[in-house]
Amino acid sequence: MKKTILVFSAALILLVWLPACRHSSSAQSTALRPAPDFSLTDITGHPLRLSDYRGKVVILDFWATWCEPCKQEIPHFIDFENKYSAQGLAIMGISMDDSEPPVRDFQKQYKMNYPVAVGTSQLADQYGGILGLPITFIIDRQGRILARHIGATNISIIESEVQKALAQAP
């Protein structure tokens, strides 16, 4: 009887835990491939070109105004901009909204302190497809992709990766 209960409990726990793992965000190794360069115009009209940020650590955040997990991450990125920009961190928000007006409103409402542009499907393809949000890339000072996080990610993981990348010499 005891064994039955134990086996039943273990099976139940696995049944609960395995789908839970599937829902958590995932970081995928990209073997330090170069981050594809892109050139966009941000929503304030300024050019936004990734290669202009060579020598900096970049958080490239694909997000959208209607994406709840994205909204949870953005305040942390605003904090990072304040905390780490002097050490060489740059953050770029690439909105995957279908139009610009809601993005402008959102940037004002959230007081986003880093450049934001509306992305394109071509840019999404360059980055392996943005088939779900948020997706966050950490790019090192040499312009290589250090990490790709799919889904809402524990912000301490991103911060730790950023700190390690910032510690490396330009």
């Binding site: 829902h23 497809g129 088939l131 779900g132 799919i150 889904g151």
Partner: peptide
């Protein structure tokens, strides 16, 4: 679609 179209379909 549990997570997103990329992970759970494509």
């Amino acid at each position: 679609i549990a997570g997103n179209f990329g992970s759970d379909w494509a």
